[in-house]
Design a binder for these strands. Structure first.
Length: 498
RNA sequence: GAGGGUGUAGCUCAGCUGGUAGAGCAACGGCCUUUUAAGCCGUGGGUCCUGGGUUCGAGUCCCAGCACCCUCACCA
């Protein structure tokens, strides 16, 4: 901050100078007629300068040459050169222009020309200041080499970019593009689900009892009732109550909160889409995921083949479908489906995967899968039929013992969705949650608790239901070729500035 | 949580086995009414992340801490 003082002081002096010109440096309104991108089509070589436009945006480059100057104006559509000539704008405006800095928000009115070097340019008839900047913007320069845009001195410090996303968005257009795509992806998802007759709902973020996933929650306190509250870790149990209530299809796109570590794939708050459809099972849901993601790609990206971090990924074909135990056998050569805990632990050791002595059957299976199978799942793949220990809210498989009707979708080695035929037998549900409660009593902080009201709801009868959760951030990462979840969150979680 | 990396001007970065802190852009001043990554000439600008230590002397070496990045672990 101290180092900035000199640059700030200079700008404050300019601000005073502008006020002395009797100009309000923070305007109230400016009505635009066009954007920078519109100007190309408006330019008429037969009638140079006849087309007039009013543009607003940030001044991103200034080249002053006495009584005439060039600059670049940037608005959300792009950049365009402006030419400010003393004769044209008058002395007063030109004096104002001399007090402007890179980053200032201005409005320009003028005719569209092409200069003799062929660059589209607005010759300013007038120029108004809309907002004076007091801090210097990182100066990013660019040059076209053929079709390639070469960028010089890009604003690259990741920490600053995340902490001051407003600056990042100003100077890095691809960041802006990522978040435009994110918005379109979510809109397309919403449109798809509504198109299939599902109802978008909102359920509580603040909960007296959390559930629906394995995770530690954030806690808070409600003063009026003087009681602890938890921020939700999943929407699941509330949404299924709505299926009990008679809605045939409900979905929610919202933040969940998990009190866990942060890395490339995890942020403490993240966006989840959860969907529940009555009278359907997980086979229905697999078809829906395949269809929905293909349609999202088509409508948002205009193609079904994408590249993620160098891997070509094809959404035009049906996803691979492999059983959980088959996938482990394929990758390790070991058949583990019938093994008990000790045998499993021995197998893991043989495969060079160290496991803790007290690791449960489910934990070892999960570890084997994460280590040997998950990284191999580059093309869209559904892994089906998970061990029952890992899925207390999923329905037992109709044929296979010991597993539930559950699938997870993997793309580029990363889990993208999770779904099951929902458990609607209240007695079985109670038994499974009691097992969770026992694990919890044994010290597993992420095990679930018994939600009596949820079981009561099931006792009123929930139709057979297919449920799905999609990690929206991860889907956006995939479709925008972003390597880190932080690149698809406008304001990723950071430690406080010191 | 473990290991590795980074931290120097507003931005992007140099800075050798320790010897008075550098460049480009930006800023400031001057000249310039069609320039373009940046017109030409000149000037200013630093808590070298923080705190200790070693040394005659530390941006540089040592210790501790902080932040960010990467890998792994944990984690849907």
């Amino acid at each position: 901050m101290e180092e900035l003082d000199d640059l700030r002081r200079q700008r404050l002096e300019k601000l005073t100078g502008i006020r002395e010109l009797d100009i309000q440096p923070y305007a109230y309104r400016f009505d635009r007629t066009h954007t920078a991108a519109d100007c190309g089509a408006l330019h008429d070589p037969e009638q140079e300068g006849q087309k007039k436009v009013r543009l607003a945006g940030r001044l991103m480059a200034i080249r002053r040459m006495g009584k005439a100057s060039f600059g670049h104006l940037m608005d959300p559509s792009g950049r365009i050169q402006i030419y400010v000539k003393s004769d044209l704008v008058g002395n007063e405006s030109y004096n104002l222009f001399k007090l402007l800095d890179i980053g200032d928000v201005i409005g320009v009115e003028g005719g569209i020309y092409k200069t003799r070097t062929g660059e589209l340019t607005v010759f300013a008839d007038s120029i108004v200041l809309l907002a004076k900047t007091l801090r210097p913007l990182p100066i990013v320069k660019e040059k076209m080499e053929g079709d390639e845009k070469v960028v010089f001195d890009a604003f690259a410090d990741k920490e600053l970019r995340y902490r001051q996303r407003y600056v990042d968005l100003i100077v890095n257009p691809d960041v802006r593009q990522t978040f435009i795509l994110r918005s379109r992806i979510v809109s397309a998802m919403r449109a798809y689900l509504e198109g299939r007759g599902c109802l978008e709902v909102e359920t509580p973020v603040l909960q007296t009892q959390y559930g629906g996933a394995f995770a530690r929650p954030f806690m808070t306190h409600h003063n009026a009732l003087d009681m602890p509250l938890y921020l939700r870790i999943a929407d699941e149990l509330y949404l299924k109550r709505l299926i009990v209530g008679g809605f045939d299809g409900v979905f929610e796109i919202a933040k969940d909160f998990r009190n866990e570590g942060m890395d490339r794939d995890h942020n403490p708050e993240f966006t989840m889409m959860e969907l529940y459809v009555a009278y359907q099972d997980y086979h229905f849901m697999m078809d829906l995921v395949e269809d929905m993601i293909r349609i999202l790609c088509e409508s948002v990206l205009g193609k079904t083949e994408i590249t993620y971090q160098g891997s070509a990924i094809d959404f035009s074909k049906p996803w691979k479908r492999i059983g959980f135990f088959d996938a482990i056998r394929n990758e390790t050569g070991k058949t583990v489906s019938g093994l008990d805990v000790e045998e499993l632990q021995k197998t893991a050791e043989e495969l060079g995967l160290p496991v803790e002595l007290d690791a449960s059957r489910g934990a070892v299976l999960d570890a084997l899968f994460s280590r040997f199978v998950e990284p191999q799942l580059i093309q869209p793949t559904f892994i089906l039929d998970y061990p029952i220990e890992l899925s207390p809210l999923a329905k037992k498989h109709r044929d296979k013992p010991g597993v539930v009707e559950r699938f997870e979708g993997y793309i580029a080695g990363r889990e993208i969705c999770n779904a099951f035929s929902e458990l609607n037998d209240p007695i079985d549900q109670r038994r499974r949650l009691e097992e969770q409660a026992a694990l919890r009593a044994g010290g597993d902080e992420e095990a679930m608790t018994i939600d009596e009201d949820y079981i009561r709801a099931l006792e009123y009868g929930m139709p057979p239901t297919a449920g799905l959760g999609i990690g929206v951030d991860r889907l956006v990462m995939l479709l925008t070729d972003s390597p880190s979840i932080r690149d698809v969150l406008l304001f990723p979680h950071m430690r406080p500035e010191t």
